[in-house]
């Protein structure tokens, strides 16, 4: 089973946070008990539990993204597509998401993550693909890429292989 967390926080604004989770849970034919159990766990993990009954239209940008991520995780998918899931989140909430994604990874589930935060990719990914102007220019584990390019971290790898464009103003 797959699940997607799109770039825009695609949630139903006139439903509460919990209402959104219940709605999508029902589309996956989950039982009420399963939905509540899973929702409580995820809401607590991401710190949204106290706001679960508030309408989503009152949520901040970061809260909407967290809710969007919870919706994507409600069915406990085997493959999860995340499109910039932590954009607009403060560092604390970003860390919470990282911890959550790491725990999912530990369960041997597949996550395909798109991000502009190189540190996020380095912290979370087993395999990284760097795409520049729509072209795949590097692929491999963060460690392998760092060793290959003889730099300290993945950000430096990125700068090294895409920096020429910046310097040349392309």
């Amino acid at each position: 089973m797959i699940s997607v967390c799109p770039q825009e926080p695609a949630v139903i604004k006139f439903l509460s946070g919990l209402g959104n989770i219940k709605f999508f849970g029902k589309l996956y034919l989950m039982s009420k008990e399963q939905i509540i159990e899973r929702a409580d766990e995820l809401l607590k993990l991401l710190g949204l539990y106290d706001n679960r009954k508030r309408l989503a239209k009152g949520y901040s940008g970061g809260m909407l993204r967290q809710l969007s991520l919870i919706i994507a995780l409600i069915n406990d998918p085997e493959i999860l597509f995340l499109d910039e899931p932590t954009v607009g989140m403060d560092p604390r909430n970003r860390r919470k998401v990282w911890e959550l994604l790491d725990s999912i990874k530990q369960k041997k589930k597949t996550i395909i993550l798109t991000t502009h935060f190189i540190e996020e990719a380095e912290a979370l990914c087993d395999r990284v693909a760097i795409i520049d102007y729509g072209k795949l220019i590097a692929i491999g584990s963060p460690k392998k890429l760092i060793e290959e390019h003889e730099v300290k971290n993945l950000e430096e790898v990125f700068m090294k292989i895409t920096g020429r464009r910046i310097l040349e103003g392309i």
């Binding site: 797959i2 699940s3 997607v4 799109p6 770039q7 825009e8 695609a10 949630v11 139903i12 999508f24 589309l27 996956y28 034919l29 919706i71």
Partner: peptide, 13 residues
């Protein structure tokens, strides 16, 4: 417009 349709499309609905 909100991307909700695309999300719903990934469910079994």
């Amino acid at each position: 417009e909100l991307g909700l349709q695309r999300r719903i499309n990934t469910t079994p609905l």
